[in-house]
Design a protein around this nucleic acid. Structure first.
Length: 488
RNA sequence: UCCUCCUUAGCUCAGUUGGUUAGAGCAUCUGACUGUUAAUCAGAGGGUCGUUGGUUCAAGUCCAACAGGGGGAGCCA
């Protein structure tokens, strides 16, 4: 009686496929549950439960199985299988499971199910984003995304940073950076009006005009002035009409702020941070990365030879780990660009002439992909093209800004040492017509115990793009929000 | 937002200087086979050619507008 009880208990023990494939053991009974990828030869089920990129082969004794049950084993169906794990009789896998009992949890009509056991275009899968997690590519991408997110928290936690939740609804247009999404409960057909005929936000939910955040930085600085080091990691919103493979209207950003850090400390941290999270996935998501590397290699084959990248995905990640980022000033970058072949041969769409203009994508790409062939940190930009809160240099022309540029991605990090001097900061705000009164709380950090400090923002999806080798940012966030697209 | 290209079967794509009944591979269905690896073999079904309007005896094919998508640019992370 006890034996029977134990047997039933073991049978009900569900095991993840990753666990079965990782161990060399065989000849034991388990239950697995997952989704059918293909059913070959009326005999072999490729079962995937999301725990790993690989499928487990379930062998069905079709001659002794109810034909009605067999018909229900279709691509996409959710099933549970109990049986013995045995060394595989076929090639292609070490172990397989010989089914004793099968249960269908959810049927999947093969006429209607859009995923087929074949290659689908990324554009098509984007249209069925609710189902694309069930593909090899997106399974790998989102497991890697998860691992990167976990590594972000681990890195900062191990260094003693405090994870600070900055607000998502804000009343201030912090950096004056771009268009914001309005947050309101007012009746859009009949908004309350002031005597002057303007919309009366005093009647709105918060008693003032509010928006979704474009950055947690200013609030982050408040935390840094108490905890020393903080970081934020949360959603960020930009209502820009950007239609590119590198922009989203809703994306996730990581923003550390550190008291007593100067620009060099800031760069050191950013570089160490990026290398840390890349090393983490190389060590923990090898199988997914190898799949993505193979996918990328096949995609590269379609391209003309001149456009192919020299390194494979994994080599590229290892290269970033083993090489220091190139650090040069904006002024040095302008000199390099001025003397570059494409500039002299008038190959740039925007020729590089004067000091002071912002760099175009083509210039950044030249520096990163052609000249240095590695990540580049550009520092000390002209004050005129950077934000008000950046620390002014002694030359009176530049600020202690730093942008990290990555091959294929462009700007992955933007940061700076912050202006800690109250008078200089207010002076700059007035020049740029930033409402000083409204940001009194931000300025208070400079009135009470100000100190040198620095920070940066890293676009999480751009990091995931780089690590996975995907090329469209819409394919590395589960449900992309872009102009004219908020499906799912 | 600007430039440019694309939209034909469930998916990926052919479709001639505009001319009868618009094709293929995969998928699906039926049957065969049964140690397969995106199984294989035989057969079948499946299309308002993105939408609207125009040119023409005749439009998948030419023109315009709109919608959606790709690539590039701007803005940025």
């Amino acid at each position: 009686m006890q034996l029977i009880f134990k047997f039933i208990k073991d049978m009900s023990q569900r095991v993840k496929i990753k666990q079965i494939l990782l161990s060399d053991k065989a000849n034991y009974e388990v239950t697995v549950k997952g989704w059918v990828r293909t059913f070959r030869n009326n005999q072999f089920i490729a079962l995937n439960d999301g725990s790993t990129n690989s499928n487990l082969q379930v062998v069905v004794d079709f001659e002794n199985t109810d034909p009605l049950l067999l018909k229900r084993i279709t691509t996409g169906a959710a099933i549970g299988v109990t049986g013995e794990v045995i060394p595989s009789l076929g090639k292609g896998q070490k172990v397989e499971i010989k089914a004793k009992h099968m249960e269908i949890y959810g049927d999947s009509d093969p006429e209607a199910y859009p995923l087929q056991p074949k290659k689908h275009s990324l554009e098509f899968l984007r249209e069925i984003a609710h189902l694309r997690f069930r593909t090899n590519t997106f399974g790998a991408v989102f497991r890697v995304r998860h691992a990167l997110a976990f590594a972000v928290h681990k890195f900062f936690n191990d260094k003693g940073f405090v994870y600070l939740h900055t607000p998502i609804i804000t009343a201030s247009d912090a950096e004056g950076a771009g268009e914001m999404f309005r947050v309101t409960t007012l009746d859009m057909k009949k908004p309350p009006l002031t005597p002057e005929g303007e919309i009366d936000y005093k009647e709105d939910f918060f008693g003032r005009s509010t928006n979704l955040t474009v950055s947690g930085q200013l609030e982050g600085e408040l935390g840094a002035m108490a905890f020393g080091e903080i970081y934020t990691f949360g959603p960020t919103f930009r209502a820009e009409n950007s239609n590119t493979a590198r922009h989203l209207a809703e994306f996730w950003m990581i923003e550390p702020e550190m008291a007593f850090y100067d620009l060099k400390d800031n760069m050191d941290l950013a570089e160490e941070f990026i290398q840390y999270v890349i090393r983490y996935v190389l060590e923990n998501n090898r199988e997914d990365l190898e799949f993505l590397a193979q996918r990328l290699a096949e995609e590269e084959k379609q391209k003309p030879q001149a456009e192919r990248s020299e390194l494979g995905l994994i080599e590229k990640l290892e290269f970033v780990l083993n090489n220091q980022f190139e650090r040069i000033s904006y002024t040095e970058a302008i000199e390099i660009l001025k003397n570059s072949k494409p500039n002299k041969n008038k190959k740039f769409q925007y020729p590089v002439e004067d000091w002071g203009t912002d760099l175009q994508s083509e210039h950044e790409r030249y520096l990163v992909e052609k000249h240095f062939k590695k990540p580049v940190i550009l520092t000390d930009y002209p004050a005129a093209i950077k934000s008000f809160y950046m620390k002014q240099n002694e030359d009176g022309k530049t600020v202690r800004a730093m942008d990290i540029l990555f091959p294929g991605i462009g700007e992955i990090v933007g940061g700076s040492q912050r202006e800690e001097n109250y008078d200089k900061l207010v002076g700059r705000m007035k020049e740029l017509h930033i409402p000083v009164e409204e940001l009194y709380w931000y300025l208070d950090t400079r009135r009470f115990g100000t100190c040198p400090h620095a920070g940066f923002g890293l676009g999480f999806e751009r990091l995931v793009l780089f690590v996975t080798g995907m090329t469209n940012i819409r394919d590395v966030i589960p449900f992309p929000r872009t102009p004219k697209n908020a499906e799912f």
